[in-house]
Design a protein around this nucleic acid. Structure first.
Lengths: 345, 345
DNA sequence: TCTAGGAACGCAAACGTTTCCACAGGGAGG
DNA sequence: CCTCCCTGTGGAAACGTTTGCGTTCCTAGA
């Protein structure tokens, strides 16, 4: 049927082992033989059978990435796609393939990952989410499978992971507003049980502290990572007797809600309220007005995760590699935060 | 090392062949034997080695999807992710895995697909884009590899493909504006060499024709699938002596540009201009105001593509299956088009 | 009682690689 | 001149399955 290593061997007048060695760039093969074999491979249109190779070499040169369950998916599409691009690009560059698996329930995820890893279809896995007490992490850890987590696990701080320094990022974002002269800065947060909400809140508070500004409980609102959260926060904030002049918002999507809320209430951004948000998804740039956002290097997160995983696969056992990778963030300043409030009397 | 079919056989007191037959739900295995084998598999934590299986059965039970080159990627992330979700969900449901491959140049794409298909890593491929004279399509066709195209190929109309009826969709969108009483309707198109631009333009023109409305060349603007295009189109349209009261816009992203342009010029949507656009990406819902958009069932496109491909893989040769699949569209009406113009004098 | 045929299972050959071991030939060192 | 090592190559086993064919046993029909 298709042309095998034996066909090439026969035609080139060598043994299959020699052809195999040419394939793997083995030294100890003479220049001439090597070239002759390569010519024959070209001539016959030979492509090595990856399955056969994997079977004997016990390595598949591919990794899998588990998409989180679809519950909270919709608005995260841009985020994931960017991440996947980073992962796939790096993996391909290292000669690895990427298998995508969609998670349903946590149990289904475990079954999928189990089938892929125990069935030796992939050499390792990338996990895209850190829920609290993640059983998938536990499963992978117990079975000694190579894997990397994009995000942070509170329960297992020592596992291979790639993440941002969210505390510092929020600190920087807040600092930016302070440097513009804002003294009354609010915070629209995400769900309090999410580690990222807590980290960003922490950075916000630290920055205020350091600047000697008051941290006011009524200027902090918790919600979901949804547009509605931002929308609702506005009707709350803008009805306060004393209002903030600037806002740190935990996510771009929430910012969109903030923007709409302000628009409906007749307020202007940035004149009435300055906004800095997080993640720098494309919607941050596309909204009216464009909103300043903390770029967290999503592509880079994926790229680095892939790199770290493959490294840990290839140098199995050696523990000298870095466990936690921190991807740098960078504030992208746009219209929503280019206004300084009038000096307080 | 890991537990194989032989271990199970030994422990269950049967031959490897029997275990294999249990695995494939072969009849002619007695209930008791089958159950005993299953118990042992459970007990030993057996997982079949997918590579070994593929090697002998000559089928990998996986497909690949080729992401288009990153040039025009950025704003398409949401689109692709949704598509991929559909693909992966259906594939997994059919017991298939999905390998993602990122295209660089067209040549690189061919090499990737060649390696995956000739190397027998995957059984078929999904192509996500129809450029004109696509060499990848040609390559797959010539090599008789199973594949499906999401979109339409002008050069090869007879290949397996999944697409929308863009002519009809544009017709429906335009009709919607007409039924609101609009008589002066413009069209913001994409690149004229894109098949989708032409199809949508055609539907727009047909609807106007049918309603006896004038098709005016100066109310049609061609551009890119970019926000800037919409933005520029506005400074053009709104300076016209006679302006349209409604606009059909070829893509949600372009609509965002339109929205921003109008905002800056001080016009209001929908009072000054109604907008209907295409694709119904999440940004259409999240913008201010939310814009009416023709939902083209992106997830469904992916799901159906995957289904069609797997079907064609499994029933190789039999030609009785549908070649072109059309995914239904559905207009989602939002604020941007809930205004009827004053009756013309 | 004999035989045909079906049900349940075992044997062994593939699938296309990689890799350990063996081996031939040649040059260098003693 | 003999041995040793090194270079370049071939032989063959192994990786973990599937599957065609063969075998055994049992039942039913003649």
């Amino acid at each position: 049927m298709s042309v095998t290593i034996k066909d090439v061997a026969k035609k080139a007048g060598v043994s299959p082992s020699t052809v195999s060695r040419v394939l793997s760039n083995n030294t100890r093969i003479s220049r001439e033989t090597s070239q002759k074999v390569r010519d024959v491979m070209e001539e016959l249109g030979y492509h090595p059978n990856i399955m056969a190779k994997s079977l004997v070499s016990r390595t598949t040169e591919s990794i899998c990435v588990i998409l989180p369950k679809p519950a909270e998916e919709l608005f995260l599409n841009m985020f994931f796609m960017e991440l996947i691009r980073g992962i796939v690009t790096q993996a391909n560059r290292s000669g690895y393939d990427v298998v995508i698996s969609s998670g349903g329930s946590e149990q289904e995820e475990i079954e999928a990952v189990s089938r892929l890893l125990k069935g030796k279809r992939v050499d390792g896995a990338i996990l895209l989410y850190s829920r609290k007490d993640d059983r998938v992490v536990e499963f992978l850890k117990n079975n000694q499978f190579p894997f990397v987590l994009v995000g942070r696990s509170e329960k297992y701080p020592d596992i291979l992971s790639v993440d941002n320094d969210n505390v510092q990022a929020a600190y920087d974002a807040t600092k930016h507003l302070i440097s513009l002269g804002h003294q009354r800065i609010g915070f629209v947060s995400g769900p309090p049980n999410h580690i990222v909400s807590r980290d960003r809140m922490k950075g916000y508070v630290t920055a205020l502290d350091e600047a000697g500004l008051a941290m006011r409980k009524d200027w902090i609102v918790e919600g979901e990572f949804l547009q509605e959260s931002g929308y609702r926060a506005m009707s709350f904030f803008m009805n306060l007797p004393e209002r903030p002049t600037a806002l740190v918002v935990v996510d771009d999507l929430v910012s969109l809600g903030v923007l709409r809320g302000l628009h409906e209430l007749g307020y202007k951004v940035p004149e009435d309220l300055c906004i800095v948000s997080f993640n720098n998804l494309s919607i941050a740039e596309l909204s009216t007005p464009p909103v300043s956002s903390m770029d967290i290097g999503i592509y880079n997160l994926g790229y680095t995760a892939s790199q770290a995983l493959i490294q840990s696969i290839q140098h199995d056992g050696e523990q000298q590699f870095q466990k936690r990778h921190i991807i740098p963030h960078r504030l992208v300043i746009r219209e929503s935060s280019i206004y300084s409030p009038p000096r307080p009397s």
